[in-house]
């Protein structure tokens, strides 16, 4: 009995440490965003008086709403394309026998390890020549491509779990492979597709290197680049409060989605990598 309560205390401590570890920086940026400008330098963890002035400031300025719109649009379009292309490829790799499928997987794997900085120079040059520089398409293309391996892996892992006899049954009943894919498999694959979509979206939402290299104005600059290059609207104002408020605005929605779908995200993040 004593041993049992000791063990409970041990795990409770562990749990509290883990939760504190994850939450401290988040609570810190939240409380920074809620401090009054005058209190920003008080070196305290929690705000003395709660104020929403920084939130009003960032939404009154043109820069942040534009960046938010760019981030949402670019990340969503990239996600749709990456998941659709990834779905086709993953289905073919899991279900069909054809020469070259191992090569495609190896290529996708190599791309996952690819350092993005290795191609920003060529892309910068090409995008300026073709007019893609500082446009949505100029970011969607690299995001879509860099997340394709993630999408293919995650989807392939989920597709392997699907009861394929249904697919066979449909094909015996006279459906073509394409019909079997659309009518039978796609609905079963929806959870995997959704997981892949979240992971891809987070990648595009998070990226800074491409956004910093391939955009220059509010036309296509996404939130991470806008925040990193943010300077206060006047020289007398500390941008820390505005940056913190902008950070909270872009963090909260993603965090809610991740917390709701945490189980799927965990299986998606690990499925491509381990499991013998």
């Amino acid at each position: 009995m004593r041993n049992n309560s000791l063990e409970r205390a041990f795990w409770a401590m562990g749990n509290i440490v883990v939760i504190a570890y994850a939450m401290v920086p988040v609570i810190w940026i939240l409380s920074l965003s809620l401090k009054r400008s005058a209190d920003l330098n008080d070196q305290r963890f929690f705000p003395h008086t709660i104020s929403f002035e920084h939130y009003r400031t960032i939404f009154a300025d043109a820069q942040f709403p534009a960046a938010l719109w760019n981030s949402i649009g670019i990340a969503s379009v990239s996600t749709v394309f990456a998941v659709i292309l990834g779905m086709f490829a993953a289905y073919a790799i899991v279900r069909l026998q054809f020469p070259g499928r191992r090569l495609i997987l190896a290529g996708a794997l190599a791309t996952a390890m690819f350092p993005p900085v290795a191609i920003i120079g060529p892309l910068f040059n090409l995008w300026r020549a073709t007019g893609l520089f500082d446009t949505w398409a100029g970011l969607i293309l690299p995001y879509m491509t860099f997340t394709l391996p993630l999408a293919i892996w995650t989807l392939a892992a989920f597709f392997r779990e699907i009861p394929w006899d249904l697919d066979k049954a449909a094909r015996i009943d006279g459906a073509t492979p394409m019909q079997a894919f659309i009518k039978v498999i796609a609905p079963l694959a929806a959870p995997g597709v959704f997981t892949a979509a979240i992971l891809v979206f987070i990648f595009a939402w998070n990226d800074f290197l491409f956004a910093a290299s391939l955009t220059s104005t509010n036309d296509a600059r996404t939130v991470p680049a806008a925040i990193a290059f943010f300077t206060g609207s006047s020289r007398f104002e500390l941008p820390a409060g505005s940056i913190a408020a902008a950070s909270v605005v872009v963090t909260v929605p993603v965090m809610i989605v991740v917390l709701i779908f945490q189980r799927r995200i965990v299986s998606g993040l690990t499925s491509g990598a381990v499991k013998g």
Binding site: A22, M23, P25, V26, I29, I202, W205, N206, F208, V223, P224, I227, A228, S247, V250, T251, V254, M255, V257, V258, L259, L269
Partner: peptide, 9 residues
């Protein structure tokens, strides 16, 4: 939570 937060943030 740390995974869901933008690296820049």
């Amino acid at each position: 939570v740390p995974y869901a937060i933008i690296t820049v943030v």
